[in-house]
Design a protein around this nucleic acid. Structure first.
Lengths: 204, 204
DNA sequence: TTTATCCTGTGATAATAGTCACATAATTAA
DNA sequence: TTAATTATGTGACTATTATCACAGGATAAA
């Protein structure tokens, strides 16, 4: 028995994953998919490799096929994490991408990463061809907005411990894959504090 | 000299404001503007009147022409503010509007409010007619996402005092128009704490 | 394997923020 | 105008979190 595992087959799988993701968001014809192709490039990143660097303009959307990445600000040499992006999510700086302003944060691969990069200019070309691509874009941004709103609300409504419990309930994968110190930064608490909160919870 | 101040003139002014706002976001032809009309209704709200109620599905976008409103969660009878929306902003629950899920929060007029309501179904009809309306929608959501991201980042990067200073620098209008106790909730601190932070700052 | 690096846990202490109580000021309604 | 309501300031005290220091464990690289 021969199992095909060459690059071509891998690429096909990755592209299939993306199409499946897209179709989970909106109806998407074969024609739209063909029109979208010129905007797409498969790309791999090594662990710790930057997808986006602070000070640069973000001209890409990154569909995460495998691995995960995070966004972070560098504040006086300390990394403050603001988001984690796993499989079947889009990572980007939506503000920089949309407005052309410089990005205030970095995006870095936390594991070896397989992504499909959407080129902004080519995507906008494709967008003009069909409503489906435009609708896709709108839905992607809406999901992004919803998530941001969700996390910003977390801080207004809940204590650090409640925020942790929320993530445990709603994003268990994040807890599994992200280290305590990385998560602490995202939750806006010191790692020591998160360690103690976790201990309190396992005792109680 | 006769100054025309009847309803018709008022409506025209409000509509003109909206068109100006739209054209600040994207190019928008007279044709698109005409196509959009069926989706629009001018509406006024009294102070404390609800634009959106928790548990209802949000089927509207509210362009704020005059006055301001806020979004808040009711947690055990206590109002926790999550957003303020002033003139030339769009207030809505983007998640509920986009997904059809019930809203988890309320939106209420904090002053007598003049708004233009976008009806969802009619807006979607209009969206199919021209790319410009779809692009407008995408830009509105992007602005919304950017703002949510900005505020959620605030909590991860800054202390309560730094968050206040950020608002003072970037959204001075909010400080002017929103009372201390309302703002405290938005900043995720007790009103007493915000009062003391403010005192510390005026002394220093 | 061995070293180096990173991650986690924990004590001690300081800083920050929350809660309760109450006085006063400001605003709104009668 | 007066009364009622709402908003703010502040003291006292408690709770939570940050910071520093250091030890031990896990992981990765040589």
């Amino acid at each position: 028995m021969v199992i095909v595992t060459d690059d071509t087959a891998d690429n096909k799988q990755t592209m299939d994953n993306l199409l499946k993701y897209i179709r989970s968001l909106t109806s998407f014809s074969e024609t739209s998919w063909e029109l979208l192709q010129p905007a797409l490039t498969k790309k791999t990143f090594k662990k710790k490799e930057l997808l986006l660097e602070q000070g640069q303009v973000c001209n890409s959307l990154f569909y995460i096929d495998n691995g995960y990445c995070k966004s972070y600000y560098d504040i006086d040499g300390v990394q403050k994490n603001t988001g984690f992006f796993f499989e079947n999510e889009i990572a980007t700086n939506i503000n920089s991408f949309g407005s052309g302003q410089k990005s205030g944060f970095n995006i870095v691969a936390c594991e070896p990463l397989i992504a499909i990069v959407f080129d902004k200019d080519k995507l906008f070309q494709a967008t003009k061809q069909t409503h489906e691509i435009e609708t896709l874009g709108r839905n992607c941004i809406r999901l992004f907005a919803t998530k941001q709103e969700e996390f910003s609300t977390l801080f207004k409504l809940y204590s650090a411990q409640e925020r942790l419990e929320y993530l445990e309930a709603k994003y268990p994968e994040m807890l599994q894959r992200v280290s305590l110190s990385q998560l602490a930064s995202f939750l806006g608490v010191a790692r020591e504090t998160l360690s103690r909160i976790r201990k309190r919870r396992t005792l109680a």
